[in-house]
Amino acid sequence: MPRSDTSHMHDHGHSHDHGHVPPVSADSEKRVRWAMILTGSFMLAEVIGGWLSGSLALLADAGHMLSDSASLALAWFAFRLGAKAPDKRRTYGYQRFQVLAAFVNGLTLMVIGVGIVIAAIQRLSSPVDVMAGPMLVIAVLGLVVNLVVFAILHRGDQGNLNLHGALLHVLGDLLGSVAAIAASLIIMTTGWDAADPILSMLAAVLILRGAWKILKRSGHTLLEGTPEGIESHEIRRELEALEGVESLHDLHLWGLTPQDPLLSLHLVVHDDVDHEHVLRRASALLRERFGITHATLQVESESCLTGGGCETEASRL
């Protein structure tokens, strides 16, 4: 009778179910928490300064910082939730919530960017006087705060999608502060009030560019896309080159987060091959060559013994 063996491979070298929790970086969580506190504290000052000076750039940046405070809080909560152990309803745990938080942050960035552009167009058609002096003071203070927050986050793990999304929010704030400073200086030296909405739009374009990147990356992960830096055809080629392996099928490669790749596949081997030996060699190859430490491998001595997507194998993932 044909045999069908299954192995769950992990970095600690023994078999069990999928109830694992990838480590959540305590450093990233701490950095996001400090960023949230600093951003939220300064946001009120920008609201008051923008209202008193009549600066759209400051008010836009204040609105952005308000959104950032909420987004950083969401990112921080995602780190906290991600540390929870798996349960009966969520056997993979809560790591995926980090990706969901990043996707929501990307959406809010898109809304903010579009909102700034619309407000700037309206301001160009109906210009108002701007008090450049108070605007400059608040903008400079905002720049200092944003630089501190940016430095805190930038020194963290940039491979973490949740932290990267928070960083993009803060980068948008930083650009907003730079735009406000430039606009105030232009207004003070030339009296050209249109500099305020124009520079606001330029900052908004950069915000939208960053938002699209984070939406694309987080959406790819939510759709179970192949993790960045790993090619399924390379995995197929390396595994099929192993001694005793005849072919493979039902190869699926995805990730809970971009840093936590998962893989499942069926290996078809020759009848006289030691299945355990093939599993050990395949597991070692995945770990050492591709950095995949969590894989479900099934060894079969008959092609497509357990069904699956065998009819699509001609397409070669």
Rank of each mutant, 00 (worst) to 15 (best):
T221S: 06
A75F: 06
Q98E: 15
A166P: 07
V144W: 05
I207A: 01
G159F: 08
V149M: 07
A179V: 02
S55L: 07
S55H: 01
K88L: 10
S41G: 11
H164V: 10
L242R: 08
A204N: 00
L267P: 03
S7Y: 15
G142L: 07
K30L: 11
S200R: 01
H8P: 04
R217H: 14
S69E: 06
S125Q: 13
V145H: 05
L206H: 11
K216D: 12
V47T: 03
M201Q: 00
H164F: 12
A78W: 08
A282M: 04
A195P: 04
T257A: 15
I214Q: 03
E246M: 11
S184Y: 08
G225Y: 06
D11F: 11
F79P: 05
A83Y: 07
Q259M: 11
L222F: 08
A120N: 01
H14I: 05
R217E: 15
G156T: 02
N146A: 15
K216Q: 13
H275R: 13
V148F: 02
V99W: 01
L297M: 11
H64T: 03
H294I: 02
T312Y: 15
L58Y: 07
L251A: 02
M1S: 14
G133E: 13
L242S: 04
L253K: 04
A194N: 09
A195I: 07
A204Q: 01
R96A: 08
S4Y: 08
V99A: 03
L202K: 07
A182S: 14
V117E: 00
L161M: 14
R289P: 05
G54D: 05
W34Y: 14
V111R: 00
I112S: 03
S232P: 14
D27I: 12
E234W: 08
S177P: 04
A78D: 03
S15F: 11
V99T: 13
G210C: 05
H154S: 12
W34N: 10
A132P: 07
V99N: 00
M43N: 03
L267I: 10
L100P: 05
W254D: 03
V114N: 01
V24D: 07
L317M: 10
V205K: 02
R287E: 14
S184T: 06
